[in-house]
Design a protein around this nucleic acid. Structure first.
Lengths: 326, 326
DNA sequence: CTGAAAGCGCTTACAG
DNA sequence: CTGAAAGCGCTTACAG
């Protein structure tokens, strides 16, 4: 493998200075046509590729947006991180900001703070998803002075932007429609109490049903299954509302096993791919992830450039399928 | 936002030279205990974060492995890119190589060659997935002198490593077992003829069945659905083998619509999450993606360090479910 | 229109 | 054990 050629190699061979090469390659408009052609030809001939690190180090223009995804690979069947990744890359593609990807987990969060990461990499702004209130980064966000937009997650402090649906309103609407369609006794299976969105969904349910039955299944299909499988006097329940589709699927499996699937309405949350494929197909709350990412990128760039921080709700949609004819 | 502090700021404040700071921070063992403590304290005090670009530019040690994923966000329900991403990050985490992520599509491939990318970023090795034979990068791989391992994809040229199942053998085994369980007339629905694995699967089928019925559905659920929905004399078909689970699901939907689902065996390929959730649950060929990524990373590092290129098969597994009791 | 030179913030022989 | 200095490969005022 030949030694990589540098801007100086190109300059020498083209008989010009490296400043001139730099100007040509960066599309400055102050270079003679002849010179430009010559330089371009030589650059191609030498397979010149400008060193990225040198470019970043020397340039004043440091527009970089990092996407931070936590615990990317935990749950089979849930593609949100992938949708966000694809969406952010696509949206950033149309801007002058460069994309930097950083996948973390609890351990990595402890090893390197957000501030460290942003400092090392000259990050102008952050899009972040997947943190629970137990995560170090969640708390660091509140005092971080780097523009940030959180996706599907709200941070109490006002200096962090966010894009999500109105989880409380959505859950309230589901609860209301469950009641309206004749259900009296409703069980709400929540994920955990360290995810902001889960707490909001629970608040929504509580706003409509004074004393709801509530269980926690840690966003796990298996745990939701067990809860319903072992529940006593299940016949008294009219409907089960789960804070995620995966848990709702666990519920449906358990109801089927107990032969009461037809009598009990089930509603999920997210509209993952599975929701429309299982039997019965799952009534659920759809979140428009592509829209989340587009808005997050736009809001973040605005925040970087003007300092304006917004917390935005994206419209949700209740998708009625066979598991509950709301 | 305060100006970022540099190594020189730390050095001055600690009353030492920047070389000393560098040595302390990079865990050289030739620094006095006192000095070390002082430097560390000052670094923390100033929230010092070593500039990444400067570090890369100046350092001799440039161990970086890039993961290149093509068309990351096309198909809902297919999580392979995410599994690979998570797996590669995790595997790399245990090595001294750094992770670089690069998501491309047809347009980006045209704008920047692999060679350019590797040159700019000082990439020591490449893991790549998702290319078809129509992709520019697919062809560039053959003449690229950067160590590379392809996942779920074979490149004819011997200088590219690969990790996949033996697609031909797997498809042949499915065909054989379909015959063995009494099916006579078998339709093979393939994806496309520009994906290496698709061609291998077809070769496997042909190796067992002399003149198989073959259709192409471009890996699309909808297209597979239409093919089966509109097929004449479907009652003459005993079994349908699709080259992907998504297409198999389209097949099942169409068979259900035509009320012949119970009479016709269906087998898919991949074992995506959906496979076990649909009704009837789908018999399919499972690929062990986590294993793919582990092996790919190990092979790539070996290739970088010793030059040895291997093309490796990972064992597949035929998962028998309700759609075909093989 | 083009070039000389400083500077970005590190690492790394080398000297002492 | 510590420091002075060169060098990594670019960009960018500035001068002409």
């Amino acid at each position: 493998m030949m030694k990589k050629s540098t801007i100086l190699d190109v300059a020498k061979r083209a008989g010009v200075s490296s400043s001139t090469v730099s100007h040509v390659l960066n599309h400055y408009d102050d270079i003679g046509e002849e010179t430009k052609k010559k330089v371009l030809a030589v650059a191609k001939e030498l397979d010149y590729a400008p060193n990225y690190a040198a470019k970043r180090l020397s340039s004043k223009n440091k527009k970089q947006i990092a996407l931070i995804l936590n615990e990317i690979n935990v749950t089979r069947g849930v593609a949100m991180p992938l949708e966000i990744l694809g969406g952010v890359i696509e949206a950033l593609d149309k801007t002058e900001y460069e994309f930097v990807f950083y996948a973390v987990n609890g351990r990595k969060q402890k090893m390197k703070s957000l501030k460290q990461f942003c400092g090392e990499r000259d990050i102008s702004g952050l899009i972040i998803q997947g943190l629970t209130t137990e995560d170090p980064y969640y708390h660091e966000l509140k005092r971080l002075d780097v523009p940030t937009v959180a996706i599907d997650m709200t941070v109490k402090n006002g200096s962090v932007g966010s894009v999500s649906i109105d989880n409380q309103a959505a859950a309230a609407e589901v609860a209301r429609r469950l009641l309206a369609s004749g259900n009296k006794k409703i069980l709400f299976i929540n994920g955990s109490n360290n995810a902001a969105v889960a707490m909001e969904r629970e608040a929504g349910v509580r706003s409509v049903i004074a004393h709801p039955l509530i269980s926690y299944a840690n966003f796990s299909e298996e745990m939701a299954f067990q809860i319903v499988e072992q529940m006593e006097r299940i016949e008294e329940i009219d409907a089960i509302f789960a804070a995620s589709d995966l848990m709702a699927i666990g519920v449906i499996k358990a109801l089927k096993k107990r032969n009461v699937a037809k009598k009990i309405d089930v509603v999920g949350f997210d509209d993952i791919t599975l929701a429309s494929y299982i039997t019965p197909s799952l009534t659920t709350v759809r979140q428009n992830i592509p829209e989340f990412t587009k808005v997050a990128v736009a809001d973040l760039i605005q925040q970087i450039e003007t300092g304006k921080v917004v917390q935005k709700y994206i419209p949700y949609e209740i998708i009625v399928r066979d598991s509950a004819r709301l």
